[in-house]
Nucleic acid binder design. Structure first.
Lengths: 242, 242
DNA sequence: CGCTGGTTTGAAGGTCGTCAAGAAGGGTGG
DNA sequence: CCACCCTTCTTGACGACCTTCAAACCAGCG
């Protein structure tokens, strides 16, 4: 098997240095690829399947609908992230995953996962780290919505997305491609689309960050960090990394 | 060892029916008890210890401080709940746990946990279920703050607390003892104490629920559920249970 | 070229925060 | 036993942030 560094491997490499064997294992884990178009449900609330997915290309979102008609976006899975790993072990999933763009995903069955965990314990550790990071992101998201105002929330979200995309080679310090529209941003941040629009304008006018044509352009990284009170330790578990 | 049903066993019993052996194992797991007074830090942000705790008596809270001086409460561990289980496996903890009242806790080391998992796989499953439920609660908390207004948030929080306390025999359908003051409620719900006060009055005037003298009195359970859009499936993983 | 999804902007109003101060309770010490 | 704390609760006034409603605009696409 050709020595390809998958997005997952790239991400896990920031936590543990993987051997060629382990990289190959990860590559084979992700060999069963499948394309889905934008806005496809991948894991739905109440599902009892013991399957999970790895997002290979494109963006997705994990959300929960509330009875009054609203939607709260919990997280944005990016390439290299797992989706629905919780439902592999037990429980029916209590939230849904859907693609936001055209995407490529690969299936992970309970069996293959168990097999890999037996053969490659270091990969198991690395995946545990990744899921632990995912939980930390949900917690930080909670803090973001609970204790920051609109402009800080947006700044924080963009900083986190930039950081994560950088890990898998999809962002630079200058910016990144971002398919999120203002409705999606609103549903993620507990705001309305109209207000997101106004706040984006503020960020633009203050020359901090600009979102145009599905492209985020970071103009003042230190300024953004200061504004959002951004501390990225929750993303790398205390191990430095911008 | 006397056949005591610990709070933890009571909670896990709602998920899997435990055998006497397993109950005894859980009892011994929690034998190293320790008292702490109110407002004691149990797990602090940045801690690298490989220890976790089980809350036996009293209330605690898990929170994160933000640079601008605020505090966001992530969750309220109740008797029978784990605290800091994440930091047992890996990562430094990225949030803190502290007691809210005088409390009794018991330490769980990585070794004993590993030992139990080896000997009693069904307990392992049950504990996995419990941590999975904890994550689901954080997600629901996120939805609560992101997509509900103040009165709905409070109603939802009280319904969840009542449900969880009932599992360990500390609540009835009529109400429960609740040591949370309005500042704590505010920090949990992304509000201010002043506004919490006003909203509590509304709940009282609408004869839905009353909080007086550290005591929650539920006056209209169906009304509360309707108001909050409360769906408890996230607490029991699809397995019925009020 | 008209449709559709997304962005932008204005006006008006409501929820919630801020500031401030008083009341109510519980504990402590004189 | 009362005076004097302290913490917590309560209420009012005012303003800011954010929502709601509405409409115009723009770009891509069939």
């Amino acid at each position: 098997m050709a020595q390809v560094e998958t997005v997952l491997a790239k991400k896990l490499n920031t936590f543990v240095r993987l051997s060629p064997d382990e990289m190959a294992c990860l590559a084979s884990l992700q060999s069963r690829r499948r394309s889905v178009s934008a806005l496809t449900e991948i894991v739905y609330e109440g599902q009892t399947d013991h399957r999970a997915w790895i997002l290979q290309e494109g963006w997705a979102n994990c959300y929960k609908l509330v009875p009054n008609g609203g939607r709260q976006i919990i997280s944005f899975p990016l390439p290299g992230d797992f989706m629905g790993l919780r439902s592999v072990l037990l429980r029916t999933s209590d939230h849904s995953f859907a693609s936001l763009t055209d995407a490529v995903i690969s299936e992970v069955s309970r069996q293959t996962l168990a097999e890999i965990f037996r053969q490659f314990p270091r990969i198991a550790i690395a995946i545990l780290w990744a899921t632990s990071r995912d939980e930390a992101m949900v917690v930080e998201h909670l803090v973001n919505i609970g204790r920051r105002d609109a402009i800080e929330r947006l700044a924080h979200l963009f900083l986190e997305l930039g950081h994560r995309l950088k890990m898998v080679g999809l962002a630079t310090s200058e910016g990144f491609a971002c398919p999120l529209n203002q409705y999606v941003l609103a549903d993620a941040l507990g705001l309305t689309a109209v207000h997101v629009n106004r706040v984006l304008r503020q960020l633009r006018e203050r020359r901090l960050i600009t979102l145009t044509k599905r492209q985020v352009i970071i103009q003042d990284l230190p300024g953004l960090r200061a504004l959002a009170g951004y501390d990225s330790t929750y993303l790398n578990g205390g191990i430095d990394g911008t």
